[in-house]
Write a protein that binds this DNA or RNA. Structure first.
Lengths: 187, 187
DNA sequence: GTCTATAAAGCGATAGAC
DNA sequence: GTCTATCGCTTTATAGAC
């Protein structure tokens, strides 16, 4: 039973949990009501647009977290690039619970839900890529190499999450992060 | 609508298309009926267990394709390891339409559908990992390095598919394959 | 702001004619 | 083997009391 946590933030956390577990289509209002502790009436009062509004709110929450915890440090010229990159990988391990939590943006990217949230999904990965590329350029890499490494790292993170979940093995994700860290240092 | 392609193989191809596009939950019998050209009665005659049976048939079809086109060559000691690995990457670009087609096994791994098909999902990636590791060992790498490279490659492929779809950019996947190919050669 | 009751539509699945 | 008609249930969403 949802432990009646009705602050806006807690509701969004509950929503995120349901969408991550069941995907957009599988997240029924019955599941959502149970996870948030709110009845349908309350949910539609808070999110007049229904599930679409709820998912948009969750995505905006995720986006804001990554913006402040990951993208901003990467873009900050006052932070040493190597430090902000290390911090990015630490933040990923934390955020994705060492591989036990899927990336909702990635899940949406793979589903037909993608069409409804195309700009948000696109923007999330785009800003991540731009920020990491900027940090890599600050650490002396060419534009082309920075871009290539960035693409490789984003794929490694998302793929690590997919396979960690397929194997139900968080270690898989953590080893992938370790490999990415080494590769980013070595270049 | 569906161009009345009622051979078993064509039906399974239609099913696969629907599951890839909409996921398991989003693949309604209406969609499935349209894509296969078969009515509900015919579908339940062919798949008495309903959607679960249909998805299982699709997964078995995918599994068989990879087994014969990818895993078997990788395991074949008579084929030079470098050749079977190159062939694996070519097969992936072909099969996933250069990044425009998602990996249904990966999609299922991320969804709560995973629980229903746990063994199949697990087995698919496990046999892939074992086959690639075997090829890498034949090409002279230590057990540990072969395993690490294998994990990195599988993550790169799956992650490349996720982000290529997020950006709607097949080039992303193809560049990731190129990077993996270079890394596998360089080691 | 939260709830219950209810509407209207779509769902997976089945029955039975052909 | 394929179809149509139908069942029973769940779905999203709304209305209205409190």
């Amino acid at each position: 039973m949802g432990a009646r946590l009705h602050s806006t933030d807690q509701v969004i956390k509950g929503l995120a949990e349901v969408f991550r577990e069941h995907g957009f289509q599988g997240a029924s209002l019955a599941h959502i009501s149970k996870a948030t502790g709110l009845g349908k009436g309350s949910l539609y009062h808070a999110f007049p647009g229904g599930k679409d509004d709820m998912a948009a709110a969750v995505l905006a929450d995720i986006d804001a977290w990554f913006e402040s915890h990951v993208f901003a440090p990467l873009n900050d010229a006052d932070v040493p690039a190597s430090k902000s990159i290390d911090h990015m990988l630490d933040a990923c391990v934390d955020y994705f619970h060492g591989g036990g939590r899927v990336c909702l943006v990635g899940v949406f990217a793979l589903s037909d839900t993608r069409d409804s949230f195309e700009d948000t999904v696109n923007g999330y990965f785009h800003r991540w890529a731009d920020a990491l590329s900027a940090a890599l350029r600050r650490s002396g890499h060419s534009r082309a190499l920075a871009r290539s490494m960035t693409e490789d790292v984003l794929a490694g993170i998302q793929g690590g999450l997919v396979i960690a979940r397929a194997f139900d093995d968080n270690g898989y994700f953590e080893r992938e992060i370790k490999r990415l860290r080494a590769r980013l240092k070595a270049c």
